[in-house]
Design a protein around this nucleic acid. Structure first.
Lengths: 196, 196
DNA sequence: CCTACCGATCGGTAGG
DNA sequence: CCTACCGATCGGTAGG
């Protein structure tokens, strides 16, 4: 998405993207100005345009980087020879790990994608929908296998995806549990709720 | 929050708030302009100010209307003589019903509150935190009672609240299930996951 | 409830 | 990478 105008500038471009993610998360895409971003990066606003094409391009880069990362991962998990419950568990753990690791960019992809311009807006919606469909497929197979209860697979996927997404609230508090406890508790909660 | 400048204007003011919620949800608070809102209401932009104080006041009204509604409800449920599992179930069902009923305003309260100005920003954060604490209390008592497994109550609450919040995604698709199925499936998923 | 209009700020460009 | 600056749009006010 982001144009690479010179091999030497890749690093600076990455700094800009990283700072943009922080800014878009904190103030929202629309309220975050390129002048804010310039201050964060340490240059004047017009200088940003030596490294990036536009503000909207920054949003595209962030959203599709995140979206494709999750899609690539689920493609790998689908091919594993394990139960569907194990696959769902693996994916839930991946979501939680990513949420703790790439918090800013995932937050932006989750909340600010609506500011994408066409055709990226529609492309992103399709990407999300395809991702959901893959998870729904895993749940459906698990129901056929009697691994899971007879539930509506779409509702189960919404429940699971929303729950892991909600980890964005964790950053507001000091917590008295480890990341491992977080992962295990959430996996158990979400899997025990649907297991046969 | 919203000033009532004349008894006769309450209705128009309510129309403005309702349209503002739709607009803030669709475009985001910052990207939604008072000129957009004026078009939706059917007046010129300056005329809006005969009914409301400011754009930020609209956001305050919406956020605290939603926040106080949930807080009032949990206060009532807390006093009921029922098991903690039943109380949690009642609250989950309330969240789902409200989500389907007051979708626009709840979406705005969930996503756009970060644009609140001080002291409202901090007040809203405190309100949310207090709401979470009440739910955590219900889970903790349920763990002592052996109604629930020995889990981290905060993680369980985050999981539950995030899951019901995720119903905002439902509006994007045509669904082949009833609201009752949605309620029951989600309640079962979230409660069976933590019940002893 | 309108027309006319304000200062501030926006994303981005020109030119060096 | 900077200074200088553009047209567009913003929330909101004055005055009737």
């Amino acid at each position: 998405m982001a144009k690479i105008k010179s091999g030497k500038n890749i690093s600076k471009q990455e700094v800009i993207i990283r700072e943009a993610a922080i800014l878009f998360k904190t103030k929202g895409y629309s309220a975050a100005s390129m002048r804010d971003l310039a201050v964060a990066v340490g240059v004047e606003a017009p200088s940003l345009y030596n490294h990036i094409g536009s503000k909207s391009e920054l949003l595209q880069t962030i959203c599709f980087k995140v979206g494709n990362e999750f899609m690539d991962y689920v493609d790998i998990v689908e091919k594993q020879s394990s139960t569907n419950a194990e696959k769902i568990e693996t994916i839930i753990r991946f979501h939680i790990k990513m949420m703790l690791q790439d918090f800013n960019e995932i937050f932006v992809a989750n909340h600010e994608w609506k500011h994408l311009k066409e055709p990226y807006f529609t492309d992103f919606l399709v990407l999300r929908r395809n991702y959901e469909k893959k998870l729904i497929g895993l749940i459906e197979t698990g129901i056929s296998n009697k691994e899971f209860k007879s539930i509506n697979p779409y509702i189960a996927v919404i429940t699971i995806l929303s729950a892991v997404r909600g980890l964005e609230f964790l950053h507001r508090h000091k917590n008295n549990f480890t990341n491992q406890t977080l992962e295990n508790d959430m996996v158990n909660h979400l899997l025990n709720g649907i297991k046969q």
